[in-house]
């Protein structure tokens, strides 16, 4: 009996020292104990696949094609321009609703804020880490830009800014433009914009 307990104890120590405890950091890929159909010869997104010369399972779009549902026609919703011209549309071609503004605010926080800052003044967090300060949305030159041009800047990029078309779909770009306009208005207001009865309150 004594031998038995000794052997068991030693075995336990051996297993523990070899296998460790649950949750220990490990560089080795997980062991699949019962690998029944866990890995199938099918394509998973962004996985490695030797079937194709470049080794990717996610394929690049074939040149000269567009995805279904993709923006394709020359309508102002997709280009920011009057059809058949290079003139930017002055006001956004989509109806401005509270939900559009809320969407724009959310998208602004995700995609624009890191460089342009929450106030849109170009002093986002990235400028503290060596980024050339991004455009200040309250610059009068930018405020006078037509909505279509704002849309195109997001789509195509400008100066140091890269194109965001692949990252932000067209409807979201219009939502961001709508929110930017609200952001600009927040700095353009004058005392006259405040209704007379409330002005004394503002002065406090």
């Amino acid at each position: 009996m004594r031998h038995m307990i000794l052997i068991l104890g030693l075995a336990a120590v051996l297993v523990l020292s070899l296998a460790g405890l649950r949750g220990c950091a490990s560089r080795r890929p997980p062991i699949e104990i019962f690998p029944d159909m866990d890995r199938q010869p099918k394509l998973r997104p962004q996985a490695r696949n030797p079937l194709f010369p470049d080794g990717r399972s996610s394929r690049q779009p074939v040149e000269g094609t567009i995805a279904r549902q993709a923006a394709w026609d020359g309508s102002p919703e997709n280009t920011g321009r009057h059809p058949g011209t290079t003139n930017d549309v002055e006001v956004l071609p989509v109806p401005v609703t509270p939900s559009l503004l809320a969407r724009g605010q959310e998208r602004f926080g995700i995609h624009c804020q890191p460089c342009h800052g929450p106030l849109g003044d170009g002093r986002g967090i990235a400028s503290r880490y060596g980024m050339i300060p991004a455009a200040n949305f309250h610059d009068p030159r930018l405020v006078r830009m037509p909505d279509g041009e704002w849309f195109r800047v997001i789509t195509e990029g400008r100066n140091q800014m890269a194109a965001y078309a692949s990252q932000v779909p067209a409807p979201d770009r219009w939502a961001i433009v709508a929110y930017l306009r609200a952001l600009e208005r927040s700095r353009l207001g004058t005392v006259e914009d405040i209704p007379e009865p409330l002005r004394s309150e503002w002065r406090k």
């Binding site: 296998a19 560089r27 997980p30």
Partner: peptide, 16 residues
């Protein structure tokens, strides 16, 4: 019971 579960086999995987 302790080892043959994803709590052991998967948790903690941290490749370089």
């Amino acid at each position: 019971g302790y080892y043959f579960t994803p709590k052991y086999t998967r948790v903690g995987y941290q490749p370089i």
